[in-house]
Design a protein around this nucleic acid. Sequence first.
RNA 1: GUGGUUAUAGCUCAGUUGGUUAGAGCACCAGAUUGUGGUUCUGGGGGUCGUGGGUUCAAAUCCCAUUAGCCACCCCA
Length: 452
Amino acid sequence: MAQKPSIPKGTRDFPPEVMLRREFILDTIRSVYKKYGYQPIETPAMENLSVLTGKYGDEGDRLIFKILNSGDFLKKAQHLDDAQKLAPEIAEKALRYDLTVPFARFVVMNQNEINFPFKRYQIQAVWRGDRPQKGRYREFFQCDADVVGSDSLIFEAEFISIYDEALSKLGLKDFSIRISNRKILNGYAEAVGQSEKFQDICTAIDKLDKVGESGVKKELLERELPEAAADQLLQMITFAGSNDEKLAYLEKLFEKSESGKKGIAEMREVFAFHKQMESFRGTIDFDLTLARGLTYYTGTIYEVVTNEVQMGSICGGGRYDNLTGVFGKPGLSGVGISFGVDRIYDVLMELNLFDERVMDGIQVMLINFGGESLMTSLKVLSSLRQAGISSEIYPDEAKLKKQFTYANRKNAAFTLAIGDDELSTGKYQLKDMISGEQQALSLEEILARLKE
RNA sequence: GUGGUUAUAGCUCAGUUGGUUAGAGCACCAGAUUGUGGUUCUGGGGGUCGUGGGUUCAAAUCCCAUUAGCCACCCCA
C-alpha cells in the first residue's frame, strides 16, 4: 500500500456534517454583525512578514508561520548561521496570525476611501505555529467585528447586545458576559503603588480562574511585587457584590487614581447605554478579576463564558487606542470582539443544540431507471430546480437498493420515482423518506407539496 | 521550548508469562429481497502490527533508536 496521506499537525478536514454545523454558527454570527451595521472585508492569507513581526510580542513572533521565498532564496541570505536573522532574509511573507493586525494595515492603506467610523466584520482562518492540544489548532477561524475611528462607548454597549443575540440564536441559554476595563486594572496598580508593574499584574490576575488566589499571589511575588501590595490587590479583586456595589467599592479605592476613576466612569456609561437596549438574555458580570493577556487593550475588555459546560472563554474583545499607530496613522481608537468558533462548536455539540434542520441534506433525489424514463426524469429535475427545490438524480441506472441507500445517506427528504408505469400515467411516485409513505402525484402536485 | 503518553484493517480498539494462519465492532462489497432505503441474517474483500536495528529456535509482545499523533505546561482562541 502506498504511504498513507496525512495533514499537517494541528490542522483539520471538515466533512459535510461538520461543515453544515460550522456554517450554521458562522451564518448566525454573520447575520447579527450585519444587522448591527458591520460590513465584511477579507484580507490575504499571507501578509508581508514585516507587517506582522513585532506586533505580538517575542512569543508571538516565534509562532508566526513564515513562507519561504521562491527561487534561489539562499543567494540573498547573509546570516546562514543565525536563524533569527536568516528568517526575514529567506521569508518575506507569512501567514496571518490574527485578523486585527491585518485590519489595522487595511485601515491605514485605505484611509482615504474609508468612511469613519469604520465598522467591519471579518471571518477568516488564521495560523499559529503553536503546539496543538485540545481546543487549540495551528489553523483556526476567527470571527471578528471591530469599529475603528470612534471613542463612543455606544459601541461597547452594542457589543454586549451582539454577544447576547448571537449566542442566544445559537441556542445557548446560560452564559455570562464578563466585562471590565483596563483602566480599572491600572487603578489597582496605582492604588497599591505599583503602576510600573501593570503588565505583570494583568498577567497574574488573568490566571485567577485557573490557579486560585494562592496561585495568583505566588505569581505576583515571583514577578517581584511586595507582599503587602499583593495582599491588597487580592483583597480588591475578590470583592463580592452586585455590579453597582463593585463600582461604589472601587470608587473609594481609586480616589487618588485618575486612571481608575476614568475606568469607573466608562463602566457606568456603558451600563447606562446598555440599559436602553432591550431583550437581554445573558447576564452582565462586572468581573474585577478580568484582565485578558493581550497587551494592546486599553479600555473596556470582554470575555464570555458559558455556564452550561466546562470550557474556557468562548468570546473575547476589548478597546484599544492607537492600533494603527505602528503603521503610521496615530490617533485612531478602536473596539472589537471575536467569537471562538471552534469552542462554540464543541459547546453546542456537547449540549446537543444543533437543530436537525442544520443537517438537512437534499430535498429530492430522483431515481434513475434509464431510457425514456431518464429523459423525463431530467426534465422533471429541471422543473424542481427552477422551482427552487434542491434536487439531484442518481447518475447511474443502478439497483434500486443502491439508489435508495444513497438517498438515505444523503439525508434526502424525498425520493421521486419515474419508471415505465409512471410514464404512462403521468403520476410519479413521491416517497417521504422519513415516514416511508409513498404516493402517486402529478408534477404540479409534487411542486405544490414540496414548496410547503 | 519543557514534560507525559500512544502507535495493530478505512475508523475505534482487543491481542494473556514471547509460541501455529493477528482478531472484534463499525464501515465497504455481495446475497437473502429482479420497482423501494433505514432494521435483521448470511457470506466476502481488506493488515509485511508507525519506521529502522537488536535479543531469541520463535517478536505485535522484550531492548535500543527514530518518526508521527495525542495530552499537559508556557502562551493563547
